[in-house]
Design a protein around this nucleic acid. Structure first.
Length: 206
DNA sequence: AAAATGATCAAG
DNA sequence: TTGATCATTTTA
């Protein structure tokens, strides 16, 4: 699999978000390769985006990684229980990120299913297969992504994103982002993108 | 529909 | 130091 180069991430978050669809998120854990196809993302555009953690140039220990170079991993913990993985994009001092919201499981299926449900993939019910990675918290559980991945270099060998298949053709749907009602006018920006018709998209109807 | 559950952040 | 908030998931 061809790893995406640093340049790829140096574009604005909306551009990177759209291009990330169909690519493969890969995590090497304990010598095994966990991978999933990216099917749903959201762009957070930083200082001018009220939904972004970096709105108004908010700069804290948590958001610090966003101010550095592109191609690094921003992981945050939400609701005291779940982790969400983001990709840092754009230039230094432009704190933009792309949230990865859903994956289609590709490899390491047994490891993923054990993490989520405590049993092998072949023993899962159909509903459990869909629920393996169809949400930002769920995919982090399955892929074993946690705060130890904060700051990981996507151009490294532990956690990275690889080029998708050239014959994987799909339509992109854009919609409002999920669960950002607090963000006033930004709540309506169409910065969520997903692969039309893919069964692993978290909320296809919105 | 509502609980679970704790880090994070801004206010004081 | 504290209290409200929260880019979610699960269970009911």
């Amino acid at each position: 699999m061809q790893k995406l180069p640093r340049d790829f991430y140096g574009q604005d978050a909306i551009t990177v978000a759209r291009k990330l669809l169909g690519k493969y998120l890969v995590h090497n854990v304990e010598g095994e390769e966990l991978a999933g196809k990216i099917v749903e993302v959201e762009a957070y555009m930083g200082p001018e985006d009220k939904a972004a953690h970096s709105y108004n140039y908010r700069r804290t220990q948590r958001t610090e990684i966003m101010y550095g170079p592109a191609g690094y991993v921003y992981v945050f913990r939400i609701y005291g229980m779940y982790n969400c993985i983001n990709v840092v994009t754009a230039e230094v001092d432009k704190p933009q990120v792309v949230l990865i919201r859903a994956l289609e499981p590709v490899s390491g299926l047994d490891k993923m299913s054990v993490k989520r449900y405590g049993k092998k993939y072949s023993e899962l019910k159909k509903s459990q297969i869909i629920n393996l990675t169809n949400g930002p918290g769920k995919l982090c559980m399955a892929m074993e992504i946690n705060m130890s991945n904060y700051g990981d270099d996507l151009c490294g060998d532990r956690l990275y994103i690889a080029e998708g298949s050239t014959d994987d053709k799909f339509d992109i749907v854009s919609s409002k982002r999920i669960n950002i009602d607090y963000a006033e006018e930004a709540a309506d920006y169409p910065w969520r993108f997903y692969i039309k018709g893919n069964p692993f998209v978290s909320k296809p109807h919105i």
